[in-house]
Design a binder for these strands. Structure first.
Length: 196
DNA sequence: CTTGAGATGTTT
DNA sequence: AACATCTCAAGA
């Protein structure tokens, strides 16, 4: 009997997705009007062995059920009593892993997004996971939906230059955070921390 | 610019 | 009691 493949084996795909999403456009037609951000910050929650993941130790509940869905599903959760945050599921059905969409640069329908966000300036529109969700109209109604078409999908954008790529520890994570699984565009004013 | 407290409800 | 957060007011 041989050793099982280590958790790191399964982490690779999710990490790759988190990195590769930078530069692509997240498009929303929620509410009938189109708007979009260019993704500039993501985080990887790589599976049941990730202590920061909502699916740590295969935890499964009504809240995180969507993490067990097929790749390309949305996992939208409610946190801190008032905010929605959106993830894209990355691994095979039944293996819970996802990428948190943390920040985006407004590129289309900016005034619509600004209105949803209470009239803030451009750099405040989607510079954080809950801000991004609010700007695009993402709520729990989209939990479990596929991001392959309306009302929410990802369009191909310019790949991010390697010089502009930054990595750090994840934000707001305390439980055994050793790896650097936050990926962002260096120097962007639209990330959730100044310049990353 | 920075820091810190309060909001607000679900999950553990 | 913590939480994959945000806003606002106050200070430097």
């Amino acid at each position: 009997m041989s050793r099982p493949l280590p958790p790191a084996f399964y982490a690779r795909a999710t990490v790759a997705v988190a990195k590769d999403l930078l530069g692509h456009r997240l498009v929303s037609t929620v509410g009938g009007r189109r708007c979009a951000v260019r993704l500039v910050e993501t985080e990887a929650y790589v599976g049941p062995h990730d202590p920061a993941s909502h699916a740590f130790r295969w935890h499964r509940s009504r809240r995180n059920e969507a993490m067990y869905g097929p790749p390309g599903s949305l996992y939208v959760y409610f946190t801190y009593g008032m905010h929605w945050c959106a993830n894209i599921v990355t691994e095979r059905e039944g293996y819970p892993a996802a990428v948190l969409l943390r920040a985006g640069e407004p590129v289309e329908g900016v005034e619509l997004m600004r209105r949803r966000r209470g009239g803030v300036r451009d750099r405040e529109i989607a510079s954080g996971p809950a801000k991004l969700a609010q700007a695009l109209g993402i709520t729990g109604r989209l939990d479990g939906h596929l991001v392959l078409g309306p009302p929410l999908w990802v369009e191909v954008g310019e790949p991010l230059d390697h010089r502009r790529r930054g990595t750090s520890a994840r934000i707001g994570v305390r439980r055994g955070e050793r790896q650097r699984r936050r990926y962002f565009e260096k120097g962007s004013p639209h990330v959730s921390r100044p310049r990353g």
